[in-house]
Amino acid sequence: MHKSDLSYQLERFGLVIVWLAFIALFGALRPDTFLTWSNFSTIFGSEAVLVIVTLGLMIPLTAGDFDLSIAQIVTLVSMTVAILDARMDLPLALVLPLGLALGALIGLINGAITLYFRVHSLIVTLGVGTFLHGITLWIGNSQTISGVSPILMEWVIIQRVLGVPIAFYYAIGLAILIWYMLSYTAFGQQLLFTGRGREVGRLTGVAVDRVRLVAFVLSGVLGAFAGILYTGTTGSANPSSGTFLLLPAFAAAFLGSTCIRPGRFNPWGSVIAVYFLVTGINGLSVLGFRTFVQDLFYGGALVLAVMISQLVSGRKDRGL
């Protein structure tokens, strides 16, 4: 049977194997700095934001849509939370739901424009994202806002379980939720048909427009959640922070779709892909390479990932 093929298993776990090989390589070269628990726990904790952005991006991608605005949702929500909390002294119990609601609202706007005007989501979210960045610079006066409540930091980065900041567990918790949603709920199947067989889904009674709208809202909420974690991680909001999240998240989502469940965007693949990419960059910088290596690595990984996934699916022309 197909599933027990050795080559299929190799394909599923190929990325994990390469990841472990990377760790072994860097570990052998720099055992004292790279191969330490404190290095890894920092990686796991600080990249939780990227994991969540990738998970958020994956949902519209599964439904056949792009959300290029997600990184700017992160920044805007991060900035909004910082301003409401540090400048206006509103209680976190109010600020955090407001932040999430803002993300949902932006997702709703993305979806509404895409669906009502029948414009490609790539264009809509590119524009909305840039617009959001403008708002972020505006409300934050183009400055970093610091002085965020320590309670938020406490519950994002200071609390540790097994030495790893709690933010990591939020990301894993979300990955579990999304994995369950995609694998065990009717909505997950509807998302999949909306992306991979939209007309089939529509004729089988799937409200494809509603599914796409919900996908945009979910990616908005996840972006907002990542924004809150970002503020909590650094204790401040930086107007350009999100700009560096979009490409890694895309690279990880596409790279993730080549493993665990090859051919589909899947949460565990995405999580592994994020940590694979980050490990690579961390290792190379430990070896003394400078910052340009990030761009080489992320950009190269994205192109490589789509090449691999096309080879896997037999090089068919497709929208994604």
């Binding site: 694998s183 065990y184 709920t185 009717a186 997950g188 199947q189 509807q190 999949l192 048909f193 991979r196 067989g197 007309e199 089939v200 889904g201 004729l203 089988t204 009674g205 799937v206 051919g263 699916s313």
Partner: peptide
Amino acid sequence: AGIAPDLSLTENAVLPLLRGSLAI
């Protein structure tokens, strides 16, 4: 319009049965 070629036979066959299922 008939099948989603990328998806499995099972996924294609059971789509109309899922409705609002939360535990497939």
